[in-house]
Design a protein around this nucleic acid. Structure first.
Length: 753
DNA sequence: CACCCTCGAGTTCA
DNA sequence: CTCGAGGGTG
């Protein structure tokens, strides 16, 4: 029986949970209505409490199942009467939810069948905020209340009167004697961030998300607050916004469609949302849903879905409502951006620079449309700051819709079996003691740059990457196979120095262990030995002569090597004549990325000239300062580093720009984009990501990687994200793929012609 | 001393 | 693509 503890939820599946939430919600609401409305008591208090606790626990586990109308959020439930209860003149109904396009289309088909004719659909964004009802009597605002349980809400009039844009008196003429305007109170993402910045500056706690912030802001009391706290309260209320999207308690509206109702609301001076559309078919409504699924973050406020309403008011009565929701409207819910999952372990990985990075290993969870099982935790301080323990249920989200991020633990769901993560003191791959690179650094590094398997593997993979020598076929898998095969004992590559010396016979004998894609564990055969593959050896055909991988190599690789291996060798060969800057990036010198490498290559013309240069000569190059100069000098002072350069050269790598006259040569200058900075984002038709940058540089312009007010042009294609948003914010010149093509071929003048 | 920018790392998708 | 860290520049 109820003892206050959170109920156990062993392996509750999402589908079961959804069903149960529905059942519990209905029971609780029925019980509560009985309690408020009459003396009758259909359940005892203890049972009621138990339902509530179970519902709360499920909602903690699956926050996406918590609707705005959940009993756990309402007055009758939790914290009682911070503000006086207000009864709505007309019940604030909630909406049924659909979670997929199929479900939506099925709903629409049912509506059209029941209506017996084609219908129009009013589509609008479902703002992730707080539902509010404003009561106007004879055009004057008399009260404002939260939704509460739909029948009775909390009076928040005093606070609502401080929100900008809410009229005390409705504009125009002929208002009904009584009308309840329904809307949503929210923060824009930008205002939410500025509010959090303010909270931080005042040393107050930060809000987790705009919705929580909006909810908390409306529920503040002035009494008992000092001047500083009152100021903080004003800061919050002044940033709140409202949009209205419906009416209640209006007997005979003088219009026949929902969209005309919006027009009226707008003419009364109430804030309506600009994001809506009347669709003349379900397919059109579906397109609206899909469009905002892709452009969810292009809107200034957070949205958690789309509301679709039948536009014809006459049909509202015909279709009617269930006990909880109207049949003429539906909420399409986008995949949640925050979910709970289990933190199974915290594992430390070592990158090519030796940095040891802890990352979270989680039970696979679906977030924002993809399945996530890992997320970086950056360093041990971040692990501590987030307060997560191994075994915790944690809140997971995708920052910027892409990068998985662990926000923190759900402390209420701990059972005592959780344990803290301890940062290892040795490198997990080579056992060397980890240490900060310099005094005071938070990051720990493995000092064994030359032979730590993780670092060698990382550097080899880096050489193949697009920003370096761009060798197709030399990625994560090949890098691991070449540096850490289970056989032969001595790998083909002990360091990257041997990359250009690889011969066919070095590849064909390689065996690597097979790791399970799900678990990352080594897969075992029936006899307990690890399963292995030979990625570079061709499947033997019956017509092939037999061969012994341990036997002597006969010099002809064609029938033994896989196509991938032959291709890899050819690509490595071809890389020997790539541009100098690519070799500089491939050497993994700290602080030398594509930009610094290009500057150095252009000035010095060869690796040898850079090696021979003094600190001051290096630092004299534009874009290179003392730190990078020191880093270069330090790098060339290490014997095995120099050996990499020498062996690459001996194997035929170019390591210089042909025809370059030597240090000091200045760029040819000119070019149609001389002095202009251009940022390319999204997919530009006719260009790859790299290709667009190349084109900008070739035209004499600067290809920047981030947008700032120094940027002259932002070329944006489909899929452009935050950079486009920032460019709009700064009022920069934004161009499409066709204009970009003109820009890089004929210069900025061609755009205006 | 502000800014603005690059670097480096982790991640997932088609 | 995004973030934090930290370098470079005006």
């Amino acid at each position: 029986m109820a003892d206050g503890a959170a109920p156990d939820l062993p392996d509750l599946e999402l589908e079961q949970a959804r069903d149960e939430v529905g059942r519990l919600t209905e029971r609780i609401i029925r019980a509560r209505d009985a309690y408020y409305g009459a003396d009758a008591e259909i359940v005892d208090d203890a049972t009621y409490d138990e339902w509530m606790r179970r519902l709360e626990a499920i909602e903690r586990l699956y926050p996406q199942l918590q609707g705005q109308d959940s009993p756990t959020l309402s007055v009758g439930a939790a914290s009682a009467t911070l503000f006086a209860p207000v009864e709505h003149a007309e019940r604030m109904l909630s909406l049924d939810n659909v979670f997929s396009e199929e479900e939506f289309l099925a709903w629409a088909a049912r509506v059209e069948r029941d209506a017996g004719r084609a219908v129009h659909y009013l589509c609008e964004l479902k703002i992730d905020g707080l539902a509010l009802s404003l009561r106007y009597e004879r055009g004057r605002l008399v009260s404002a209340a939260t939704r509460g349980d739909g029948r009775v809400g909390e009076d928040v009039t005093e606070n609502v009167r401080q929100i900008a844009g809410i009229p005390e008196r409705l504009a125009g003429e002929g208002h009904p004697a009584l009308v309840e305007v329904r809307g949503e109170v929210f923060f824009t993402v930008a205002d939410f961030e500025s509010l959090n910045a303010y909270q931080e500056s005042m040393g107050d706690r930060l809000f987790a998300n705009p919705r929580n912030a909006a909810s908390g802001s409306l529920r503040q009391k002035t009494e008992g607050k000092n001047e500083r706290q009152l100021q903080a309260m004003r800061e919050r209320l002044s940033r709140l916004r409202l949009t209205v999207h419906g009416v209640g308690a209006w007997r005979n509206p003088p219009v026949s469609t929902q969209s005309e109702v919006y027009g009226l609301l707008k003419s009364w001076g109430l804030p309506t949302s600009p994001y809506f559309r009347v669709a003349s078919s379900a397919a059109e409504a579906d397109a609206f849903i899909r469009h905002y699924g892709e452009h969810r973050h292009d809107v200034e406020h957070e949205i958690d879905g789309i509301v679709v309403k039948v536009d014809e008011l006459a049909l509202h009565d015909e279709l009617g409502a269930t006990s909880r929701a109207p049949r003429w409207a539906i909420a399409f819910k986008y995949p949640p951006e925050q979910v709970n999952t289990k933190l199974l372990d915290v594992v430390v990985s070592v990158g090519r620079t030796g940095r040891a990075t802890p990352f979270a290993v989680m039970e696979p969870a679906r977030v924002a449309g993809s399945v996530v099982r890992q997320a970086t935790l950056h360093n041990q301080d971040v692990v501590k700051a987030k307060g997560v323990l191994i075994g915790d249920t944690v809140v997971l989200r995708k920052a910027g819709d892409v990068i998985p991020e662990v926000l923190g633990p759900v402390v209420e769901l701990r059972d005592g079996s959780e344990r803290a993560f301890v940062m290892p003191s040795e490198c997990p791959e080579c056992g060397s003691p980890l240490a900060p690179a310099k005094e005071g650094d938070i990051d720990l590094r493995c000092p064994n740059a030359r032979s730590c398997p993780a670092q060698v593997r990382g550097r080899v993979e880096h050489i193949g990457s697009r920003g370096a020598l761009d060798i197709e076929g030399l990625g994560e898998v090949s890098a691991a196979a070449l540096t850490q095969p289970v056989r032969p004992e001595i790998p083909p590559l002990v360091t990257e120095a041997g990359l250009f010396d690889l011969r066919p016979e070095d590849l064909f004998g390689i065996d690597v262990v097979v790791r399970d894609a799900e678990t990352g564990l080594v897969r075992l055969l029936e006899d307990g030995s690890p399963d292995t593959r030979s990625p570079f050896r061709r499947q033997r055909k019956r017509t092939d002569p037999p061969f012994d991988p341990n036997g002597p190599f006969d010099g002809d690789a064609s029938h033994i090597l896989s196509a991938a291996a032959t291709q890899l060798l050819a690509n490595i060969e071809a890389a020997k004549t790539k541009e100098l800057w690519r070799f500089l990036v491939a050497l993994s010198i700290r602080h030398v990325g594509p930009v610094a490498a290009r500057a150095l290559a252009q000035w010095f013309g060869s690796v040898d000239a850079i090696r021979a240069a003094s600190r001051d000569e290096l630092a004299g190059v534009e874009g290179v300062g003392g730190i990078i100069a020191d880093s270069l000098r330090d790098w060339f002072a290490v014997d095995w580093h120099v050996e990499i350069v020498e062996r690459w050269r001996a194997a035929g790598a170019q390591l210089a720009t042909p025809g370059h006259p030597g240090p000091g040569a200045v760029s040819s200058g000119g070019g149609v984009l001389e002095g202009l900075t251009v940022v390319a984002t999204g997919s530009l038709e006719g260009y790859t990501r790299e290709g667009a940058q190349e084109a900008i540089i070739r035209a004499g312009g600067k290809a920047a990687s981030s947008v700032s007010k120094k940027t002259d042009f932002v070329a944006a294609g489909p899929g452009a994200g935050s950079k486009l948003a920032k460019a709009e914010e700064l009022g920069l010149r934004i161009i499409d793929a066709a204009q970009f093509h003109l820009l890089v071929t004929q210069g900025p003048g061609a755009l205006d012609g």
